[in-house]
């Protein structure tokens, strides 16, 4: 009884379907398109794997590099031994004056410990290490100054804070020169900042690449399903209805690419864990590489899905309207 006797009966039968039922059907269609999109990926496993691999590599490159950069930043930001400040004192300060100065410096909130190296200790040390001892004795008087080696408290170990502490101590009248071995650390951090920025730019370009890859794959898919699109339009399908399966298809590609990227980053980190542990042990550190973490993994997967979705949007916007029944 698909045919109706007249319009009145037809209208009555149509309106029997409530808005809730309609919405349920709509949601079901979404779920089915989600499943159908996945089915399409499974149907051509090799082609799908290749596309997913390309997306995965494009996502893994920036993700992996960002992980490395942030590891390097966290290492350089908390490098304990590196933030050491040496105060070279003026000549002809008596040993007791040096001790007095050391005590007052020790009282500073940013100073954890002060090691005093008197002028004669400096000389002895120099003699021992340099082998120029005899030359020095020719000079008659000791040319080396007394030195205060300061280890900042934890709050003052970052390059910026240590730099500030150095400035404060440098203005003391007894101090001839401040030497900080954090200069290289600051340069390293500046370089890491540049690297970080560069990786972000490359990430943007690779994101564009992912959009284009997915867009092109979906374009081919649209071409393959031309008849289906035409027939659906003849049966009264809206643009949104026709778009839906392609958008889900693209999102699946993005998600699969994201998972692939996650695995690639994991493998790369595992491969690097050994050498990094070795390097850390040389510095007496127990540092180990941290991975993407929960948040990073989430960002990676969500970006994959979003880029896949965007890629199919581009393809769909460009090609779907052009397909009209004739």
């Amino acid at each position: 009884m698909p045919a109706a006797r007249d319009d009145g009966a037809r209208g009555a039968r149509l309106s029997r379907q409530t808005l809730g039922q309609r919405f349920a059907a709509y949601r079901l269609h979404h779920r089915q398109m989600l499943a159908a999109g996945f089915e399409r990926l499974r149907r051509y496993p090799l082609a799908t794997l290749m596309t997913v691999m390309v997306i995965g590599i494009a996502l893994a490159l920036p993700a992996g590099t960002l992980v490395l950069v942030s590891n390097a930043k966290s290492v350089s930001g908390t490098w304990q031994g590196a933030a050491r400040i040496s105060l070279f004192l003026k000549q002809n300060l008596s040993d007791s004056a040096v001790q007095q100065l050391a005590d007052s410096v020790r009282a500073h909130a940013g100073v954890a410990s002060v090691k005093v190296i008197t002028a004669s200790q400096s000389l002895a040390e120099f003699r021992q290490h340099s082998g120029f001892g005899d030359t020095l004795s020719l000079l008659g008087s000791n040319p080396l100054p007394a030195v205060l080696v300061i280890r900042p408290t934890n709050d003052y170990t970052t390059p910026v804070a240590a730099q500030q502490l150095g400035h404060e101590l440098g203005v003391l009248p007894q101090v001839a020169e401040v030497r900080m071995d954090i200069q290289w650390l600051r340069r390293l951090q500046a370089m890491l900042d540049i690297l970080h920025r560069a990786v972000l730019i490359i990430a943007l370009l690779l994101a564009l690449a992912v959009v284009l890859i997915v867009g092109n794959t979906i374009r081919l898919e649209i071409e393959n399903r031309r008849t289906e699109i035409e027939v659906s339009k003849l049966m009264g399908a809206t643009d949104a209805f026709i778009r839906r399966p392609f958008l889900y298809h693209g999102a699946w590609y993005g998600l699969a690419g994201g998972v692939m990227a996650w695995i690639l980053v994991l493998i790369a980190l595992l491969l690097m864990a050994g050498p990094v542990a070795h390097l850390a042990s040389l510095y007496g550190s127990r540092f180990s590489l941290s991975g993407l973490g929960f948040e990073g993994s989430l960002v990676l997967l969500v970006s994959g899905i979003a880029l896949g979705w965007l890629g199919s949007w581009v393809a769909v916007a460009r090609h779907l309207r052009a397909i009209e029944p004739t």
């Binding site: 379907q17 039922q21 309609r22 349920a24 059907a25 709509y26 079901l28 269609h29 659906s232 049966m235 009264g236 399908a237 209805f241």
Partner: peptide
């Protein structure tokens, strides 16, 4: 029917 959103 699917296009018209008829209840499954």
């Amino acid at each position: 029917l699917i296009i018209a959103g008829v209840a499954y």
